[in-house]
Amino acid sequence: MPDRYPGYDVLSKRNTASWNDASRQVIDARLAIVDSPEFFDERKWRTLRAICDRIVPQPAGRAVVPIAAMVDRKLADDHRDGYRDARLPPQREAWRRGLAALEAAAQARAGVAFHRLMTVAQDALLRDMQCGRLDGPEWDDMPADLFFRERVAHDILAAYYSHPVSWNEIGFGGPASPRGYVRMYFNRRDPWEAAEAKAGHEAAARDANENM
């Protein structure tokens, strides 16, 4: 995937007027999350990490975002969303059951643990889950497609896109208080926003981003 905002690092604004103390505290804490489980046992942790790697395949040569640990903390705190499809159990139970069921499917299909599968096979299993083609006693009436949409995709992607690394990737401005934005019109960028690499002018974008 091309680097669309070369050299852009939202953290370089940490000590500017774009960040208030509250934002600094929140992001610092998020960056301090340790990549190990508090909620899941070792086995489910390995499955979860393998799933996270497929839902968000992170580019090599970049600090890895501990997505699985972020999902794990949401469950450790049992921090809920405020609604639950009646066909799903509460989130902790949904995750436990779903991960066990996916493991069972991997064992049944290939005789190995999910995290040992080739990525192609992992993707195939996840796609089957997404389409509701996985079932069995392990699921206990929990629809696999619903689990995929409401828990797997929802929780993993919410975790990734709460991390500054993902903001760099998509050119999002990140925290913005007290300073917001001035230039509102098409193709106008405030000096504290990510510069996009235009074909043939990548160096200019990098220069702008690194000297923000």
Binding site: A17, P178, R179, G180, P191
Partner: peptide
């Protein structure tokens, strides 16, 4: 918002 500390805006 931010007064002169946020002068750039």
């Amino acid at each position: 918002m931010g007064g002169w500390r946020n002068w750039r805006q």
